[in-house]
Amino acid sequence: MAGTWNLEVNGQAHAVQAEGSEPLLHVLRDHLGLKGTRYGCGLEQCGACMVLVDGDPVHACTRRMDTAAGRSVTTVEGLDAPGLLAAFLEEQAGQCGYCLSGILVSAKALLDRTPNPDRATIAAALAPHLCRCGVHARILRAVAKAATS
């Protein structure tokens, strides 16, 4: 049902007027104008919409507003991960870039928990994400580099 929902996004408090069933993805993109979180499939299959909810990677495409209310959401715009960004730039770990915001979000969650992940651990953490351009090897290197920098 429609209501006003309290949501903290990237450290800022918002009161969002929305249906309780509205996907968090729409709230972020179309209510709050945070376009970095992307629609890819709407089915939790591609990872383009990944955000952190209370620090955990969550698919924003299926997460309902009423179950996100009162929580703290972090999107790519508020990720505060300069080491990751620097490593992705150093490795030029991107082609079209459509997958990158979701991947950065999952990489940040991984590195927050696992300081020195090996390649297999990084790959497992990024397995929910698709990259169609085939930049995987560079992305894996970039995350490993960010972990050690």
Partner: peptide, 17 residues
């Protein structure tokens, strides 16, 4: 370095936006 990559890593730069 790619000109468009920093903007895309910051979450922007697409027609969808």
């Amino acid at each position: 370095p790619r000109r468009d990559l920093p903007g895309k890593l910051a979450g922007g730069g697409f027609i969808h936006d």
